[in-house]
């Protein structure tokens, strides 16, 4: 059972739940958990959420974005309060993970709330102080839904081996320092590690986003085996 210790508003749609999980065995950056909620009549619903906190942190932090017609996310981002308990299982998944011994360079590409497991990697890297060169390219629809922006700016500002580039796909903001538009070949050429540098690549986001970025990276010359993906949400197609 997990107990909610604190809830942090990240964006108008996303909240971080800081959880105490007795007996937590520890996790790798990039892993996820299954959350199971049980109604009074025994009805249950389960969903998976990525872990945002680094392995060094005692509490388990999940960042959850509200899906309007969802079942579990509206509860976690709306109803849940400090002191609530729910079932949590994990950590799960041993593929989409990164540890300092995996080495670098580390190229992270996030679409929307896909930044969550990548943030666990960035936090892990920062806590570890291992100095792996790392870059995050983070695509969001609008500025106000960028998750962890202050923390990312602070980390990148104090570490010249970490680069963070944002791109906005649905908004043009006067004075915006980041990029605008969808991730394309030109943007990857400009801001991502080149294939010759043999980066470990992790892409997480909505299915069409991940599909597009992974295809671009393979076309750019990255070996498919170095490109790890995690997709979620509707296909946007068939």
């Amino acid at each position: 059972m997990a107990e909610v210790l604190a809830i942090v508003g990240e964006t108008p749609r996303a909240k971080s739940l800081v959880l105490n999980v007795p007996g937590w065995p520890g996790h790798l950056a990039g892993q996820h958990v299954d959350v199971r909620l049980t109604a009074d009549d025994g009805y249950q619903a389960e969903r998976s959420y990525s872990i945002a906190s680094p392995p060094e942190q005692k509490e388990v932090v999940l960042t959850v974005e509200r899906i309007d017609d969802g079942e579990v996310s509206p509860f976690l981002t709306g109803e849940a309060t400090v002191g609530d308990r729910f079932e949590l299982r994990g950590p799960i998944g041993r593929y989409f993970t990164w540890s300092p011994q995996d080495g670098g360079p580390l190229q992270l590409v996030a679409g929307g709330s896909g930044v969550v497991p990548l943030m666990a990697m960035i936090r892990h890297r920062a806590r570890n102080g291992d100095g792996t060169v790392a870059r995050l390219l983070y695509s969001s629809r609008t500025r106000d839904v960028i998750i962890y922006r202050d923390e990312l700016d602070r980390l990148a500002g104090s570490d010249d081996r970490l680069g963070v580039v944002y791109t906005l796909t649905r908004e043009s903001v006067p004075g915006w320092q980041g990029r605008t538009g969808r991730v394309d070949r030109a943007m990857l050429d400009a801001v991502a590690f080149a294939p010759e540098l043999k980066p470990h690549v992790y892409i997480c986001g909505p299915t069409p986003f991940v599909e597009n970025v992974a295809n671009l990276l393979v076309a750019q010359g990255h070996p498919p085996g170095r490109v790890k993906t995690e997709r979620f949400g509707p296909t946007g197609g068939t």
């Binding site: 059972m1 049980t38 308990r85």
Partner: peptide, 25 residues
């Protein structure tokens, strides 16, 4: 079974018998 305070969820309809435990349609 420990219930979750305030959770109601969305019940599945007539097709519920075709949905394995822990799954949603």
């Amino acid at each position: 079974m420990a219930t979750t305070r305030g959770f109601r969820g969305k019940r599945q309809g007539a097709e519920a018998g075709r949905v394995p435990p822990g799954q949603y349609l």
